[in-house]
């Protein structure tokens, strides 16, 4: 999709700076997947409805499909590939496995990144707040009960 207006943009994804040659119209989602090659972040609706493309920008969860890559040159971008610490799973990842928080798995990277950010936001945890605060992530397999259980467990004080 390179065109006449493609320019070099340096994005810092999972603490690694990458210089990509992209057009202004490339969304952050497409830059992450198609230019940086990090395909863990998923493209579902591409219109900010499903949350499959959730990433963190400077620690805040956003839908990467509704922002331009060029707008994030000085930001710290975290994708699902940057959530674990080496071979040690992030507690939300471990809890999703423990509670079987997925079926097809397509929404799972977005669910996990969103949940990690949600827990850092410091909401008082209950089933209601998890359902409310995770409303931006749709699961078409309908695994919500297990997703809620996983997030509640991951959010318990250690």
């Amino acid at each position: 999709m390179k065109g006449p207006q493609a320019t070099a943009v340096t994005l810092t994804i999972n603490a690694v700076p990458r210089t990509l040659t992209i057009e202004p119209r490339v969304t952050l989602l497409d830059a992450i997947r198609d230019y940086a090659g990090l395909t863990g972040t998923k493209k579902g609706c591409d219109q900010g409805t499903c949350g499959a493309c959730t990433v963190m920008v400077n620690g805040r969860r956003i839908d990467s499909c509704l922002t331009l890559a060029m707008m994030h040159e000085s930001d710290a971008i975290t994708t699902i590939e940057g959530i674990a610490r080496g071979e040690t799973l992030q507690p939300v990842q471990a809890a999703f496995i423990e509670h079987d928080g997925f079926q097809c798995g397509f929404c799972t990277p977005g669910q996990i990144v969103s949940a990690v950010a949600m827990l850092a936001e410091g909401h008082a945890l209950s089933e209601d707040t998890v359902r409310t605060q995770m409303s931006g992530n749709i699961c078409r397999c309908g695994c919500y009960p297990h997703i809620v259980d996983a997030i509640l467990e991951a959010g318990k004080p250690a």
Binding site: G48, G51, T54, R60, R61, I62, D63, L66, T67, S114, M118, E121, Q133, M134, S135, G136, N137
Partner: peptide, 9 residues
Amino acid sequence: SASPQLRNM
């Protein structure tokens, strides 16, 4: 309004 992700944006 919207979702947590969209409210952050």
